[in-house]
Structures are given as C-alpha cells and as structure tokens.
Nucleic acid binder design. Structure first.
Lengths: 341, 341
DNA sequence: CAGGTTGTGTGGACCGTTCTCCATATAACG
DNA sequence: CGTTATATGGAGAACGGTCCACACAACCTG
C-alpha cells in the first residue's frame, strides 16, 4: 500500500488526498488525470467523484517537473498594434476546447524584454510558444526553438528548420493595394513606411517595402517608386506627417505600411481641407477598428489576424504532438475598400 | 558530501551541476540564488561564476513546489479598452527592476474564462495576482484572495478585507466632466452608459452612473438627469447611437461613459453636420489615443492608468512581503480639455 | 580558558506530480 | 486444463528546487 494518510486539517488537497478519498493509488489518480491508457470506467468514476468532491486541482508546478504542463506561452511584442488582439482571439478560440491554457507576455518593443520573457516561459516549463511579430534575430529564435516547440506569427523566415511560421502574404497585400490605386488611374504612388532596427527580410515592414518595390516594377511604375520612412518613435509621427503635407512632398496617392500611421495621415489631410480620395488617395494596412470610423473611412488591407492565430495554434499543438518537420504557411490578404482609395 | 556527480553528456544543467562546478553544496547555491542570509562574498562569487559559465537558469516549476516562483499574474478582462495597456505599462515599469516577472491572461469578457485563468495562475504557484477590471462577484474574488495575494484595479470594493483595490475616483471624474459642461452653460446633460451584467457598486460603469446622478444633484440639475444604456454587444453601438441622433433624443450636452462610445458619437454627429461643441457638447472617459486625433478631438477624463498600474504593483509586492491588512486607494482623475466640450 | 555567540556552509527531508516497471486477475486458446 | 495474452491497478523512483536543523570555526567575554 502507498503511504496514504488522511489529510491533516487545513492541508492543501493534493493527488494523495484524492487517492485516499477514492480508495485507490496515487498512480491511478494520475492516470485518470492524464487520460492515460489502462483505466477502467469504474476506476475513472471513483476518481472523478473524489476530485469533484474535494475540488482538487493538479499543481502545474509539480507537473512541470516530470510531464507536460498543458500551458502555452504567447509572446506579444506590443499591444498598440490593432492586429495583435485579433491574433490572440484566434489563438484562444482554438485553445478553448482543448486542455491547454495560454498565458501571455508583453515585450514592450524591447528585444531584451522579449528574450527574458521567453526564458521565463521556458523556466515555467510551458509546453510550447507562439511568438507574435518577434523582433529578435532568427538565430536567437532558433536557439530557443531547440528547447521548446515554437511557432512565430508575423516573422518571415521560411527557411527556418527549428520552428514554424505563419504569415499573411505581406508582399501580395501590398500588391493588391497598389493594383487598386493603379486601377483608379494613379501612377505616382508613394509608400510611407517605418524605420526598424532589425531591417531584415524576416521583418514585416521589410516585406511590405519589398512588396511595394516589386509591385511598382510589375506595374511598370518603378520610376515613381519612393519610400518615406517615419522615425522609430511613434509619438513624433504626427509632426512628421504634418511636415510631409506642408512641404508638398506627397503625390496624389499613398500607400501606408500600417493603419496606425494611415489614420494619422488621413486625419491631417482632412484637417487641411485636402479631399480624400480626390486630391489624395490613401490605402492602409491592418483593417483596424479606427479605420472603419465614418470620419476616417480608410481603405485597408486585411490580414485575417484571427485566422493566423488559429492556424499558428493548430501548428503548435501538432508540433507538441511530435512533429519536428518545420512548416511555413502564407495566408492571402484582401483589400477592404472604403472611400479613401 | 552531497550526491554530486558530473553531469552526463547532454544533460540539463541544474542546481546540482552548478554546485559541482563551484565545488560547494546544493544548499549553498540555493542560498545565493535567493539572496538568503548566511552567504559570504567569496561563496557568492564562486557560485555566480559557475552560474554564468554554465548559463544556468533555475526551474520555476521546481521552485514553485517549495518556495516562491517570482512570477506574478495579470488578469486582463479584455484588450480593446484603451485603458488596459496603460495599466500594464505601469505594472511592468515597477516590476522591471525587481526579480519578478509578469505573465498575463486574457479574460475575453467572459466570467468563466476569467475564473479559469485565475485558477491556472494559482495552479502555476504564482506569487501574486493583479486583476484589471474583473467582472467577477466580490465573493469569488475573496475566495481566490484567500489562496494568493491579490490586488484588483478598476473594481470598487473598499470594504474587501482579503484583497487590495486601486481605483480612479470614478465618481469624482464624472463630477469634473459635468462641472465643465455646466460651466459652459449646459443644464440638460445626458449620460450615455453601458448595460452590464454585473450591475453592482463594484463595477466601474455603475460608479460612473452613480457619480453622474450625484453630480447632477449637486449642481441642482437632477430634473434633467437621464441615462441611456447602450446594449451589451459593442458591435451594435454604432446603429444605436445613429438612432439616438436620428430620433432627436439627445440634448445639447452629453457625457459618455467611455471614449470607445464617445468616439462613435462624435463621429456620427460630425457626419450629420452637427457642430461640436456648438450644437452638441461631448465629454468622454479614458483619454484614449483615438480621442486625441485632430478630426475627433474629444475632451475626456484621464484616469492615469499607468499610475494605477504602478500603485497596484507596489501594493502587491508589499502584500507578498507579508502585509495582510487590506488597503484601498483612490486616485484623482483629471479632465483633458479638447474642443468637444 | 571554559562557555557563549555569531557567521557560514552542509546534509537530507520534502514539495506534488509523472513515469517506468511489476503484480495480479481475467480472458482466450489449443 | 495448463499456457499465454491482455487489461488493470500499484510501488517507488525520479524531477529540481527550498527549507530546516545542525556542525563547525572563529570570535567574544568575563
């Protein structure tokens, strides 16, 4: 017989308490908890009854020492971008009916914090990680991926062997936007982009710039191609965009890397009495809630954040389930047409 | 001598590996890790050197079985409200220089999910919890608070003995808004509010409604007091607000419970050619980013989310440190005046 | 110089699970 | 009816830390 004793008063209810109450061994309870093989219906019933009666909950910490924790970590690089909440929604949608729970970390747009959060998640013995728009070097990601199953969303690195990636086809999205503007008769189409520290092909902004150049070329407009990059600090974007308008530096059509700045641009333009889209056609990216406001009414590329999140989660679960071959998927974006372009 | 053996190849580096490398006992390493009493400088140096050389990281899971995890959990009820990210910022600001790391859970506005996330955090043996605008019954909160140190932000329950609360003084905030409108000559001031399931005094929306009624009375305007509650589903707010405008149901001044709906109102009004504030004065709540857009320019009550988050974190740390007496603080809000009212 | 004090480091139990054998009972089979 | 599969449940060793009690040395103190 196992060392089962009645719980002293006020003691925490553990797997041993449950075993004693149900009159079975600790191992048997563990098997029921994990849906493991070799459990009869009668035993399962006895154990389940005891669990319910005692309100028992297994300790994740203890689980983590030997088996799975049924926890997955989500790393968010920031929270301001409207695309993020959608992805989280998609993740939670898939996770809800499963045994898994998700906890999130917020990277504050600082690589050091991101790294430390990932380490924390590994230290917590989480079963897997979903990184949303991580800024880290691919090499760093690969190192972590060797320690824990990992899927990256919004990080273009289709050659990564250690982890999976899920992305909207950013280049295609830009092409759709430019085709729409070209279809409306525009040829001189400028791009407003963003200065990023990690200007590598993995970066979403880089991909959009590349898509812009490729699409302009494909449309025979390469002579008009022009990219203006806003500074790293978002608080100054308003002033920068004002300066662009004041200096008359903008053509009649602009593609903006994100609604975050698209909204600022359309605002500033309308405040100056510039008619949109007659005097200035604008298309943004992310189809954010603000873009849909009647006063704003900004056309925008939708990248289906919810779908990306759901996909990433399914891939992570299959990876936790044993898959080791990397998978890289690209989702087709679409244009949500409003009045701005 | 302890049972120290050289690590077999490919093995995980544990506290035992470190102890062997440093030539000290496992307990000694543990002491250094926890900054515990009774460690000489020379020992600390030896251990730290070994830790750095091996790249050792303590397992949170193992720690959780006996001592602290140095993890705190943040429960967010939703992510759409602009007030939330600010609070998180405030929390992270205080936590950054400490040993503690935070992981967040997202409640998706569903009480059942909130409860399950809190349970998960407890199962993970986190050291403490910060709940942001929890919708749960005070009784439920109290039950959890008996298991883990807890601070609630945006939950008015100054009588709670088991946990601390940190709030903006919502009643005062509304009073400030109404005083401003009254000062501009308005007497017939309506409030646009929100239907909530948990319409108790703990709820922020309830507090704002109470503040509205109290302030109207204090200004001698109780005969004008009128509250319109928007439906639970946010997607229909646009249509509801349209209907209010179309039906001519609005007076010349409106206080809106949150910028989320304030922005919709000001948008709809401007689209109809209603001049703001000449024909319709509006003041919102939360001082969100969208409110500051030039086209929107919505006056709004600022509740200092960052400060609330920082305060809550300090209180949680002191509670983890041993305090058991509950504390309840109220922070003074302020009006950010723009052109809308 | 005997008897406290204080400061440091150690051994080993313990935390709450999972996991790997094992033992037993029952069924299937020739 | 003896032998072999198969299904079920149990024992006990991990897992990687923390904590408690204690040993030992060096330092006071009267």
């Amino acid at each position: 017989m196992n060392d089962i004793k009645a719980p002293r008063r006020g003691e925490r209810v553990t797997i041993r308490t449950v075993a004693a109450q149900a009159g079975v061994s600790v191992a048997a309870v563990s098997k029921v908890l994990r849906n493991a093989y070799g459990v009869s219906d009668s035993l399962r019933l006895k154990v389940q009854t005891a669990i319910d009666a005692l309100g028992y909950r297994p300790s994740v910490a203890a689980r983590g020492m030997r088996g799975q924790t049924y926890m997955i970590g989500i790393l968010l690089v920031e929270i301001a971008n409207p695309f993020i909440p959608e992805v989280v929604d998609g993740i939670n949608g898939v996770l809800a009916p499963s045994n898994y729970k998700a906890l999130m970390g917020m990277g504050q747009s600082a690589t050091a914090i991101e790294v430390s959060l990932i380490e924390s998640m590994i230290d917590n013995r989480m079963d897997g990680l979903i990184l949303v728009a991580p800024r880290m070097a691919g090499e760093t990601l690969a190192r972590f991926a060797r320690q824990i199953p990992m899927v990256a969303v919004g990080h273009h690195e289709a050659s990564a062997a250690e982890f999976d990636t899920v992305n909207s086809d950013d280049q295609r999205g830009v092409a759709i936007a430019l085709e729409a503007l070209h279809g409306a008769g525009h040829e001189d189409i400028m791009m407003i982009s963003l200065q990023v520290e990690d200007a590598t092909a993995a970066n979403v902004v880089w991909q959009r710039e590349a898509g812009y150049l490729a699409a302009m070329t494909a449309l025979g407009l390469q002579r008009f191609a022009r990219i203006h990059r806003l500074g790293w600090d978002a608080t100054s974007h308003g002033a920068e965009i004002e300066a662009l308008l004041a200096g008359g530096h903008l053509p009649r059509a602009v593609f903006v890397w994100s609604d975050l700045d698209g909204v600022i641009l359309i605002n500033a333009a309308k405040m100056r009495g510039i008619r949109v889209p007659e005097d200035l056609a604008i298309i943004g990216y992310d189809n954010s809630r603000v873009a849909a406001l009647p006063l704003v009414n900004l056309s925008s590329i939708d990248q289906q954040g919810r779908h990306l999140g759901a996909l990433a989660t399914e891939m992570l679960l299959s990876r936790i389930g044993g898959r080791t071959q990397a998978r890289h998927v690209l989702v087709e974006p679409s244009l949500v047409r409003r009045t701005s372009g």
